[in-house]
Design a protein around this nucleic acid. Structure first.
Lengths: 249, 249
DNA sequence: CGCGTGGTTGAACTCTGTCAAACGAGGTGG
DNA sequence: CCACCTCGTTTGACAGAGTTCAACCACGCG
C-alpha cells in the first residue's frame, strides 16, 4: 500500500477542499509514481517545456516563476507539501512558467496518461483535481488583488498569513513558529517589491511585536494584528473544513 | 438548431484553444440556456453568492472584481463575447469575487446540473472546459507578472494587446480600430494604477503615434511598438491556432 | 440647458526603488 | 582550527515613478 506517511499532505490537501471519496484517494495513490529527492534550486520544469508528467510535492517547498526580458523575476506561486504545482500541464501542453524547488525536496512524478485515465474512470477524482486547479486560480486572483491594491506591509502580511494557513491544512504549520525556506529576495519577487523593502517592513513588524522572520523561521506573536494588516480572509482558499484551531487561528 | 450567430463567439473561443469535437459543440449548444439582455453595470453575481448556473457572454463586455475594505476596487478579469466568466462556479460553490457588465450585454445562463451532466457524458467537453479555466489561470499569472514587475506604460500596453488578441480570436477585433467599452478608471482598477496615470500614459502613447484610445475607441497605429512596450507574447493564451493575420498581427 | 459621467491638467507629496557598501552566519578546505 | 567564501541580510543616502488632491473641461442625454 502506497499510503505512506509521505502522502499524507496530498491526502489532507485534497480532503480539505473536496469531498473526495476514499476510493478516489486509493486510486490516486495507486497510480505509478516515481519519487525523487532533489536539492534546493532544482529546476523541475522550464518555461516552454512540454511535460509528460505531473509533479507532486511530498516534502519541501517549490515555487513557480517567470523571468522577464529585463532579467527581473516574478514568482507566481509558492507550493507546499501536498501540492500538485503543475497539474495544469495535464491540459496545457506548454509550460508558460517554470517550476523549481525552494528547499531540498522530495517529489513524486505521475505520468499524464495514467492520471488522465483515472480522471476518465472516476469523475470524483476528476472533479477534485479540476477543483484544485480552480483554487490555484482563486489564489492568483488574491495575489492580483494584493499586488494591485495593497501597500507593501499588507502584501507581506498577506503572504505570511496565506502560507501559514496552507501549511496548517497539511498540518505542517499548526504552531506559532514555522520554518519557511524562503529568502527575503524570493518574497520580494513574489510580491512585486524589492528585498530592501521586504527587509525594512519585516523589521517594522518585529519592532511592533507582530511577527519575527529571521533565518527563515517565522514566529507569529500577534496573529489577529497580522491578519488585520493583511486584510486576510481565508475564504478564497475554499476550504470545506475550517482552519485547524491553534494559537493564531 | 441553437447554432445561432450569437453563439459563434463561444464556438470560436473553444475552437481556438481546444480540439473539441463537432459533437461536443453540438451538445453544449443544446444545453438549456436562458438568454437575457442587461444594461451596463448589471451585477450578474456578487461576492459571496452561491450560483446555480454559469454565465455565458454573447454580446458586450463583462468584468470580475473585488472591493477591498478601504473601498478600493481590483478588477481581476475582463470578459469578452464567447467567455464563460464564472465557469469556475461549477466546482467552487462560493463566489470569491463579483461579476458585472461593462457595457449593455446579452448573456446566457446554463444550469450547473445540465453542464455537469454533460461533462460526465462527454469528456471531450469536460476537458475543453477544464482547459478554459486553466487558461483563465494563465491569464491571471500574466496579470500577476505585469502588476508585480512591469511599469505603468508596459502594463497599459499589455492589457491593450491582450484585449485585441482575445477579441480577434472571436473575430470582433481583427481590424486596427475597435470599440472597447472600458473607462480609464476601469483600466486603472485592473492594472493597479490610478486613472490619472492611465490618462497621462495614454496621452504619451498618442503623442508617440502608438495607439489612440479616445471615447472608448482604440485605434492602433504601431502594433509592433505596442507589443514591444508591453512585452506581450500571446503564448500564455495557449491558442491551438495562430492569431488571425490582420494589420497589427 | 443643466446635470452627470468620464476625461484632462497642475502641483505637491510619498512610498518604494536604486545604488552601494558592510555585515554575519554557515560551510569548506587547507 | 582558522581563514575564507558565499549567500542572505542590513543599513544609509538619494531619486523617481506614481499618487493625491483639487480643479476644470467636454460631451451626451433627459
Amino acid at each position: 500500500m502506497k499510503a505512506h506517511i509521505r502522502y499524507r499532505p496530498l491526502i489532507r490537501n485534497l480532503r480539505s477542499t473536496t469531498e473526495i471519496a476514499e476510493e478516489g484517494i486509493r486510486q490516486l495513490l495507486e497510480l505509478p509514481m516515481i519519487e525523487q529527492e532533489v536539492d534546493k534550486g532544482y529546476e523541475v520544469v522550464h518555461e516552454g517545456d512540454h511535460p509528460t508528467r505531473c509533479c507532486l510535492v511530498l516534502e519541501g517547498f517549490a515555487f513557480r516563476y517567470r523571468i522577464l526580458v529585463d532579467g527581473s523575476r516574478q514568482i507566481v506561486a509558492f507550493n507546499v507539501p501536498g501540492d500538485l504545482p503543475d497539474l495544469q500541464s495535464l491540459h496545457l501542453k506548454r509550460m508558460d512558467h517554470a517550476l523549481a524547488t525552494l528547499s531540498p525536496a522530495r517529489l513524486a512524478f505521475i505520468p499524464h496518461g495514467a492520471l488522465r485515465d483515472l480522471t476518465r474512470k472516476n469523475y470524483g477524482v476528476a472533479d477534485a483535481l479540476w477543483r484544485r486547479t480552480l483554487i490555484d486560480a482563486a489564489i492568483l486572483r488574491e495575489w492580483v488583488t494584493a499586488l494591485g491594491r495593497k501597500p507593501a506591509p499588507a502584501r507581506i502580511a498577506h503572504i505570511l498569513c496565506e502560507l501559514m494557513a496552507r501549511l496548517s491544512i497539511v498540518q505542517l504549520g499548526n504552531k506559532s513558529q514555522v520554518r519557511l525556506p524562503v529568502t527575503q529576495n524570493e518574497l520580494a519577487d513574489a510580491l512585486g517589491l524589492t528585498y530592501v523593502t521586504i527587509n525594512r517592513t519585516l523589521q517594522d513588524f518585529s519592532r511592533a511585536g507582530i511577527v519575527d522572520f529571521r533565518h527563515q523561521v517565522l514566529t507569529i506573536h500577534n496573529w489577529p494584528e497580522l491578519q488585520r494588516i493583511a486584510g486576510f480572509d481565508p475564504d478564497y482558499l475554499h476550504l470545506t473544513c475550517p482552519l485547524p484551531k491553534w494559537g493564531p487561528f
